[in-house]
């Protein structure tokens, strides 16, 4: 493999951007060429947050439709929303725990039937790994470690050109001492999925 394109999607506040930059830091440690793109600003206020990482022999830092080698979804309906990024060669790793958009939470919209939609998606991609990352994060000690659980799952299920030890080093280098133990535990729980 000479290149890998990872598209990451989630909801503001889930820590997608930190996870994204940790993949970048790990790649730097592993000596793998890396480009990362993020969206900051207005788009973050409770809305969808999308980012991307490309690894290896690439200069572009965003992922076009049908071109994601990996889709990492922090929220299942956001995974569905980003389905067009996938082809039949894509590995999808998604959190199965829903976080309803406000319109749905107050009964003005319908949350999709996730189980059947994700099943459909699973039949159209290389593989789809669905984990309850919220539950794993709570096991680790706090819901705030959700992003670490998903990083662990990414390390386990995607053929990353970056090793778990690089990701763990990146976590150690970029986490405040008080959260480090929980974050590493969350990563391990994600890796054990």
């Amino acid at each position: 493999m000479t290149a890998m394109r990872i598209h990451i999607t989630g909801v503001g506040g889930q820590g997608t951007l930190l996870a994204t930059s940790l993949i970048g830091e790990a790649a730097l440690l592993a000596g793998v060429n890396v480009n990362v793109s993020e969206v900051h600003g207005m788009a973050q206020r409770g809305g969808v947050v999308e980012s991307a990482v490309t690894l290896g022999d690439l200069m572009s830092n965003i992922v076009s439709d049908g071109e994601a080698d990996v889709l990492l979804g922090f929220e299942p309906s956001e995974t569905l929303r980003a389905a067009s990024k996938c082809s039949r060669n894509t590995t999808v790793i998604t959190n199965s725990h829903p976080q309803a958009p406000f319109t749905v939470a107050i009964g003005r919209g319908t949350y999709p039937d996730l189980a059947s939609a994700l099943d459909k998606m699973a039949g159209r991609v290389e593989k789809l790994i669905s984990i309850d990352a919220d539950a794993e994060a709570h096991k680790a000690g706090t819901i705030l470690s959700l992003n670490m659980v998903l990083l662990g799952a990414l390390a386990k299920h995607a053929a990353l050109p970056v090793e778990p030890k690089h990701l763990k080093k990146a976590i150690r280098d970029n986490t405040k001492a008080a959260f480090l133990k929980v974050n590493l535990k969350a990563f391990d729980l994600g890796y054990a999925t």
């Binding site: 809305g47 439709d65 049908g66 389905a83 082809s87 406000f102 319109t103 749905v104």
Partner: peptide, 22 residues
């Protein structure tokens, strides 16, 4: 050979998630 996105037309519509006041 252009990339071929998977079929999504028959997938359920995902409700919008516009940014909101906190």
């Amino acid at each position: 050979q252009a990339a071929k996105p998977i079929k999504t037309e028959d997938m359920p519509e995902v409700p919008g998630r516009p940014p909101n006041l906190c």
